[in-house]
């Protein structure tokens, strides 16, 4: 590959190679304050032209790597950073086996982690960002990594991908941010790196203390979720539960037995935050 960079997010080092200089430069810039990468990468991402001539003529980026999905639509080169981010997600979802992957946002306070999972639109990213602004440590809003041997949650603090209206809500002065990407399949996107405290603590795992199933835009309601239901919902929220086999099963059983789970419906973010902090206070 013409250009390459290694970046480490939590316990995982990615090698990102590209046929063009621009996507790698954008990645290096967005991740410049992350802790140093391991010398040998865990996973490889490739950003390459789907056809030779697409390198130069209306260039297109196909996202692949150690693992690929057939039928993924290439992106224009201007969206190269988004391609790199998608590539890292893809490698994690299809290839990572060291932890049970939960599609979840997580934040930490006093060594204890709050894990929030739900379908996209449930508000887990927004809640985690707002909690981080209120003194919680941001551990990630894409994947929570559950270690099968210790049962601890490891941080995976990828840059937050802000979309459309939420971009205007952020104070960008001095923020470690990517370029504004317009006309992506999800509208306008801008990536924001987590704050220095989150990156400095990213190697420190936390014990899960509360599992939350939030739902945005619903009449307020708080309902305890029994372990069996939490287990079933988390198998759906995991991309590698089946592949991990018995180790995944044991890790998940241990989690739902040890940690209380609550489904929280909330009409707006303010009441959502209030409900979460009330639950946390116990």
């Amino acid at each position: 590959m013409r250009r390459a960079v290694n970046v480490r997010v939590g316990p995982v080092t990615f090698r990102i190679g590209s046929d063009w200089a621009a996507p790698v430069a954008a990645v290096a810039d967005l991740y410049r304050d992350y802790p140093p990468a391991a010398p040998v990468p865990d996973l490889t991402v490739r950003l390459e032209a789907p056809r030779q001539w697409r390198r130069w003529l209306r260039p297109q980026v196909a996202v692949t790597g150690d693992f690929g999905l057939p039928g993924m639509v290439p992106l224009p080169l201007a969206h190269g950073l988004l391609a790199a981010e998608m590539g890292m997600n893809l490698q994690m979802a299809l290839g990572h086996r060291r932890h049970l992957l939960l599609h979840a946002a997580s934040v930490e306070r006093d060594g204890a982690a709050l894990v929030m999972t739900g379908e996209s639109g449930a508000g887990k990213s927004t809640l985690s960002a707002l909690l981080a602004a209120r003194g919680w440590r941001f551990m990630g809003d894409e994947f929570a990594l559950l270690a099968p041997d210790t049962g601890l949650v490891h941080a995976f603090p990828r840059p937050v991908s802000l979309k459309n209206e939420s971009i205007a809500a952020v104070q960008w002065d001095g923020a470690r941010a990517g370029p504004v990407l317009t006309n992506t399949p999800k509208g306008t996107i801008r990536h924001l790196a987590p704050d220095a405290a989150a990156l400095a603590a990213s190697d420190r795992p936390a014990r899960a203390a509360l599992l939350l199933f939030p739902r945005f835009g619903q009449p307020p309601s708080v309902r305890p979720v029994p372990p069996g239901e939490a287990f079933a919902r988390l198998t759906q929220a995991s991309t590698n539960y089946v592949a991990l086999g018995e180790a995944g099963f044991r890790a998940l059983v241990r989690l739902v037995r040890a940690v209380p789970a609550v489904a929280v419906d909330y009409p707006d973010t303010e009441s959502g935050i209030a409900a979460v902090e009330a639950l946390w206070a116990g």
Partner: peptide, 8 residues
């Protein structure tokens, strides 16, 4: 092998 390789 190097530690990073051993983990992989």
């Amino acid at each position: 092998v190097p530690p990073a390789v051993a983990a992989i």
